[in-house]
Design a binder for these strands. Structure first.
Lengths: 345, 345
DNA sequence: ATGAAAGCGCTAACAA
DNA sequence: TTGTTAGCGCTTTCAT
């Protein structure tokens, strides 16, 4: 599984020894000064700091980590950086880790289980203090690695499933259901779905499942659907909307699996003089801030991204009020933001 | 400068020794098998791999790195993850590092020189094999760290300045100039500027400088300007456009410092029935794929993000045809994409 | 093809 | 308050 690494050799960098020599203080005392540990007299302290600064000494965390058996790294493993949702999760994580001495390290899987396995393995090989990882579905090997890691694991974004350890997220099935109920209640009946063609986006799948289940409970179903992969999501939203509305002109609602394609759909409808939300209603998902800038506010559902990042970080950092670092499950409540694209009744 | 770290203690994880015991092969041979190094007989090899897999052994890179004095990490330090431009740089970096055994590790500075210093220090403490870092402007301390690191350094995005070692980017001054020239040549004369209020976004500043210089050369100047910070860029684009067009209704061109606010401006103009590009021309910057999905294609200038990521990674990975890993300076040529928002003449 | 010894740079534990 | 010793888990080097 591990690839053959052949990185360049380091040029020799400064060691504690160099600072020790330059300051005339033992390595151990230098180490203490640099870590603010134990009692060191003022003058000694100053001399050490001066020497370290003058030399431009940067501690070697590799040696430090090996000796102390502690690593100030938290692995954060996410599927993508390019869809506006995960950067916000990272913001939440960073905020909380800021003053803990812990450092987030990001790994990206591109929604590929194989990449996830590899990224996880690489991360674990650095013996991080905790892992924050998106989703609950993964390969048996990846799950085994998480189970055996012996560190706090927080699976984020989703709570529809069984976490290895802790979980912080929303129920995407319930989110889909909730949206369907709001749509039906608003009087829409002929409903189309537009989404991504990503077999590994389990959260989008669960939203659709919940959505369809709720429709079925009302004797309704998704009348037509469109899927895309790759390219500009905004453009795809336009194109798919054109396609689906041409094929099924009597649709009165378009549910999009994310805000970006929802925005594309909205722009297409407005361009074509379609009465939104009178003739056609629209909704997206995620609650990205982009929707606030559209000609009218796209209905969406907040995925609680910032909050998820924060709560997950609190768990691995041991910052919860109850101090728990494992076995915590937090289900957040996504809020429906009806905006201007769902008819008020 | 280093904060006091207090991460959790590791639970003991498996060591080479455990695999050695389980397979009845010496630690040394186990190590060789796991790294595909040296000659190991087929049967021995199998036994070791079987044992490692059965136990779920994950090598300890910390110990490995300390012993071998090599680290397969490349630090990538960028100002932000939330503005669509850096994720694409990262994609380019990852692509190239993919099959080199090197791993990118991302640090985010939020355009703060202090954070940059801290992130850089943290990164260096892990003794990475190379550094890819955005921009050429930084604190003297940060510059000193880069100079003394003794590893390949690639400063990216910008070439208007003096790199510590290597640089890959575009000239933002020239980009601004080029845009101004195109605008003037298209016949626009009363030009407004909309941008971010970020004193540390040196590239945006340089673009504006180049832009104004080119206008001045034609006896023109920026007639009015608006700045924003924070919030939804798309919404800010709308709001700023409304503000500037209300205050200076005779403006005939709006130059935006990025595509997102440009898109907001475009949507505002279209909503208000303003003839684009007849009455008012518009342009953004970056060439993000979002612009393809707008009602009409916003003029923009490709910032060569993917290419920058790739070329930078090639340098640190020693993958250039000439094998150079230092002192390489590559200036890429940003392409003007006139779209539909600059009048054709 | 395999093993033994030394040591990477630091910190824990103990001694003075 | 400061110093000494041992060793973290691995790889390098050298021996067999």
């Amino acid at each position: 599984m591990a690839k053959d690494p052949a990185p360049a050799l380091q040029r020799r960098t400064l060691t504690l020894r160099d600072v020790s020599d330059a300051s005339g203080v033992s390595e151990m005392t230098v180490s203490r000064v640099l870590r603010n540990r134990g009692d060191v007299s003022g003058p000694t302290r100053e001399r050490v700091l001066a020497a370290a600064r003058a030399l431009g000494y940067v501690p070697n965390r590799i040696a430090g980590a090996l000796a102390s058996q502690r690593v100030n790294l938290v692995a954060v493993i996410i599927p993508s950086l390019s869809n506006m949702v995960f950067p916000e999760v990272l913001t939440g994580v960073s905020e909380v880790l800021e003053d803990t001495g812990l450092q987030p390290v990001v790994g990206v899987t591109n929604y590929s289980p194989e990449r996830e396995e590899k990224v996880l393995y690489e991360m674990l090989s650095w013996r991080p203090s905790g892992i924050i990882i998106a989703g609950l579905e993964r390969s048996p090997a990846a799950r085994a690695m998480l189970e055996n890691a012996g560190i706090p694991i927080v699976e984020i974004m989703d709570v529809d499933g069984t976490p290895v350890d802790s979980a912080v997220g929303i129920s995407h099935r319930r989110a889909g259901r909730k949206m369907a109920e709001a749509i039906v209640q608003a009087g829409y009946r002929r409903i189309g779905f537009l989404g991504t063609m990503m077999p590994h986006d389990h959260r989008a799948r669960k939203r659709l499942e919940g959505f369809e289940a709720a429709l079925a409970a009302q004797g309704l179903q998704v009348e037509d659907r469109e899927f895309y992969s790759g390219g500009s999501a905004l453009l795809k939203g336009r194109e798919m909307t054109e396609a689906i509305m041409t094929r099924s002109p009597d649709l009165d609602f378009l549910y999009h699996s994310n805000d970006m394609i929802g925005a594309g759909g909205l722009l297409w409808c407005l361009n074509h003089g379609i009465d939104v939300p009178g003739k056609v209603g629209l909704a997206g998902f995620n609650g990205v801030e982009l929707v606030q800038g559209l000609p009218c506010r796209l209905a969406t559902m907040d995925a609680c991204r910032l909050e998820i990042g924060r709560r997950a970080a609190e768990i691995v950092a041991g910052k919860r009020p109850d101090g728990a670092t494992s076995g915590v499950v937090i289900e957040l409540e996504p809020k429906l933001e009806p905006g201007d694209t769902i008819r008020r009744i």
